[in-house]
C-alpha cells in the first residue's frame, strides 16, 4: 500500500507511532519519518493510525482500497 504524511500539517503528536511503530517513527522529539509503501498486511494498522491522527495528516491510497474491495 502507499501512504504519504503531510508533514506541514503533522504536529508530531506521535499517536501514529503508538499505533504502528513499524511504519511511523519519531527522530528526536518532533520530526516524524515513516515507511511510504508499507506491506499490505499492515493496512488495518495504518488505517487506525490515520484515523487517530489529530490533524488528519496521514493519507492512504484510495486505489488500493478499491482493489481490496474488488478482491
Amino acid at each position: 500500500m502507499h501512504i504519504v504524511v503531510d508533514l506541514n500539517r503533522c504536529q508530531g503528536y506521535a499517536q501514529c507511532v503508538f499505533l504502528a511503530h513499524q511504519i511511523f517513527r519519531l527522530s528526536g522529539d518532533e520530526a516524524l519519518t515513516y515507511e511510504p509503501n508499507p506491506d499490505d498486511a499492515r493496512r488495518l494498522q495504518v488505517q487506525r493510525a490515520a484515523a487517530a491522527c489529530p490533524v488528519q495528516a496521514i493519507m492512504i491510497d484510495r486505489q488500493d482500497d478499491a482493489e481490496r474491495g474488488a478482491a
Binding site: 500500500m1 502507499h2 501512504i3 504519504v4 508533514l7 517513527r25 519519518t33 515513516y34 515507511e35 511510504p36 509503501n37 493519507m59 492512504i60 491510497d61 484510495r62 486505489q63 488500493d64 478499491a66
Partner: peptide
C-alpha cells in the same frame, strides 16, 4: 522528501517511495 532522510539512512528502500493515488 524521504530521499534525503529515511531512504538515505537505509530505513526505507528508494523504490518504496511511490506516491499514493487518491483518484481513478
Amino acid at each position: 522528501p524521504p530521499l534525503s532522510k529515511q531512504v538515505l539512512k537505509g530505513w526505507v528502500q528508494a523504490d518504496h517511495t511511490q506516491l499514493p493515488r487518491f483518484q481513478e
